[in-house]
Each structure stands twice: as structure tokens, then as C-alpha cells.
Design a protein around this nucleic acid. Structure first.
Length: 153
DNA sequence: GCCAACGTTGGC
DNA sequence: GCCAACGTTGGC
């Protein structure tokens, strides 16, 4: 059982949409480190849902319900690239997972609070601000759940 | 809107 | 294989 954090710009895909859609394929990750994190996710793992850019806060929790499979939104890009004759055999294998809305923070936990908290200042979210799929330690998870007054559904 | 940090690309 | 140029992300 592992904990994670996934980011989304609310203008592109928000927590509200996640809640309405219930289950959502988490596509569009085009960074190798983030891709590796996606691949390491297992069914039943939990992830914080973070709103980047405009909100900058953790708003909810999702559960991984399907492990890594080829990202359908990457297939087209790959085809175009191969068609152009540049790429040597589909080297770019991007993946996605399916996530299900699990519950909402009663109190969103902001980046400012996270950065100001010595117990959380070492988070990948802080140290690698551009990493869109990041691991979260057990301690960090518990701490943020407390700050967000998280109640398991 | 600006800028720093980071990742990718292409010339050499 | 190095490095400059460029593009993107995301905090402020």
C-alpha cells in the first residue's frame, strides 16, 4: 500500500469533475519520472488530489482502481511521430491509470501551509514543484489527513 | 504577467 | 557528449 499525490489544474480537470465522473482515466502525463510513479501504483493505493496553479491546495483523495495501461491519448502522438519516420519503433510508451473519487478534505490543505510545516517541507510536492505524480510517505499522509480533517468515507 | 526551475531538442 | 536555445510547468 502506497500513497501518492496527483496534480491537476482545476481549469483543465477539477476535483468537482472527478467527483461527478466518479472514475476517471488519469491521462496526459508526459514526464518520465511521473510515468514511473504511475507505473508503480497498485489497485487500492490512495492519492491526494491537488489543484495546481490557481488554487494550490489538496482538495480530496482518490483511489487507484486500475493499474498502468497504455495512455490512449498518447497513441495518436506516437502514430504521428512514427509516420513522420523519425522514431525508431514506438519508444514513447506513456501510461495512465484509472482513479476513483474516494472522499473530500473537510478543510483543503494549501501549499502555503505545507511549506510552512517542518514535517511536510520535504515533500516531493515542495522540492520538485514540477512533478505531477509524486510519492507521499506514510507520515506525510497522516499529517495532511489531520490538517485536512480527513474522515474516511 | 513574470520568472525560476526543469526538461527537451538540435548543432557542433 | 556538451551546451545553448527553446518550450513548459507552476509558484508568486
Amino acid at each position: 500500500m502506497q500513497y501518492w499525490l496527483i496534480k491537476s489544474e482545476p481549469e483543465a480537470f477539477s476535483w468537482q469533475q472527478q467527483v461527478e465522473n466518479v472514475t476517471e482515466p488519469w491521462t496526459g502525463v508526459r514526464n518520465y519520472q511521473a510515468r514511473n510513479n504511475l507505473s508503480a501504483m497498485r489497485c487500492g493505493d490512495l492519492a491526494f488530489f491537488y489543484h495546481s496553479v490557481s488554487d494550490r491546495e489538496i482538495v480530496g483523495v482518490v483511489e487507484i482502481v486500475r493499474e498502468a495501461y497504455p495512455d490512449p491519448t498518447a497513441a495518436e502522438e506516437g502514430a504521428v511521430k512514427e509516420g513522420s519516420g523519425k522514431e525508431g519503433g514506438g519508444k514513447r510508451r506513456w501510461v495512465c491509470v484509472d482513479v476513483r473519487a474516494h472522499g473530500e478534505m473537510r478543510k483543503p490543505v494549501s501549499l502555503a501551509v505545507i511549506k510552512a510545516d517542518p514535517a511536510l517541507a520535504g515533500m516531493a510536492l515542495v522540492k520538485q514543484s514540477r512533478l505531477s505524480v509524486a510519492p507521499v510517505t506514510h507520515e506525510e499522509w497522516q499529517h495532511i489527513c489531520a490538517l485536512g480533517q480527513w474522515r474516511a468515507p
